[in-house]
Design a protein around this nucleic acid. Structure first.
Lengths: 193, 193
DNA sequence: CTATGTATACTGACTAGTGAGTATACATTA
DNA sequence: TAATGTATACTCACTAGTCAGTATACATAG
């Protein structure tokens, strides 16, 4: 039904913006409802709890985030090492935006570290695992080995860059991470250049 | 005076435990005071605000954390690459403990991402920068170049391992990060082995 | 050696406001 | 009329921070 879909989408949209901007613990359900232009009761009609809303927020970002990464990868010129580095370079650009506040998945996981069974934590883990799997496939297809280990190490550099760039408010960490990723690829498979 | 020091230390000790275990946003000042066995008013006698208490919590962890890292580095057998890898291996052990919940500095920075000027965020940035500087020196002394870039990339792997291990509740990410660090060192300076 | 003054370290009760979540009722649409 | 969606108006626990006052120690003045 249209009204439902529309209202639900507006709530989710407001939640995404506020949760990412302020952090899930610093945003009240009232604030989300107000930003969406609905009453709190309406929000609770569409989502049974704040925890569910938080999980839905991350779920909604899962595919778009992945799609953006793969788009950068596909669009980049050169071989796979260059394409991997392109992801870091693009993220460095994004991180320059004043509204950038790190990775929403990582930050939510950090906030909910005391609640490992929280639905949002599971969504976050699934998102990160999905990207690692996708990357391993790309490396494997390109003949870069060991694809799985390499993918994991690149993910580590990526998550580290999210954290360090946020800590120091300096996108240069993404550049250094991208260089490290390229170095690792080249080091394991020097022939591929 | 002894009583003051003692009380202040008890409050700080309670804050460290609770803030790390639950996250700064999920722990009330009342809870810290209760855990320390003092009234809230007494807590506010020693700390002017919760924000100051949070900053003091990280400040108190700065030196001990650094000391633990350097101790692992010093105690490890072999050359600098092996010593670097030892830090990751030791962290993997620590991460197996059920009470382990990632890096307190990173988690606090993530929670306070909306407040870049927060005193605790500054303490976190200083802590991470301090470790990066220390590591660069160790690499430089050992003749491993480029020491600064290498140190930064190893820090990125470290922060990534904190994040990914927390996300997946799997210390294996520390092992993979340690291998990546060793690979990078070997790759830049293959002669050093 | 007493009396008064003052700084330190602390307490219980409180305020003003916010938190998540809900009982009930009114509207729209199928 | 029955289901769906939205609103007003609440509950009650909890939040950071404060008020006004107290016990103790240690000064210095008489």
């Amino acid at each position: 039904m249209k009204p439902q879909t529309d209202t639900r989408a507006r709530i989710l949209n407001a939640a995404e913006k506020l949760f990412y901007a302020e952090g899930i613990g610093r945003v009240s359900v009232d604030a989300v409802a107000a930003a969406a232009g609905v009453t709190k009761r309406t929000l609770y009609y569409h989502f049974t709890s704040k925890d569910e809303l938080i999980a839905a927020y991350l779920e909604a970002r899962d595919q778009p985030n992945l799609a953006r990464m793969t788009a950068w990868f596909v669009a980049a010129e050169g071989g796979v090492p260059a394409k991997v580095q392109a992801i870091f370079d693009e993220l460095a650009k994004v991180a320059r935006h004043p509204k950038w506040k790190g990775c929403g998945f990582l930050r939510t996981t950090a906030e909910l570290a005391a609640l490992p069974g929280h639905p949002a934590v599971k969504v976050g883990a699934r998102h990160k695992a999905g990207f690692e799997t996708w990357l391993a496939e790309q490396l494997d297809v390109a003949g870069l080995t060991p694809a799985k280990l390499l993918a994991r190490q690149i993910i580590l550099l990526l998550d580290g860059a999210f954290s360090a760039s946020l800590t120091h408010r300096d996108p240069a960490y993404f550049i250094a991470a991208g260089q490290a990723a390229a170095t690792l690829v080249a080091c394991y498979a020097p022939k591929m250049k």
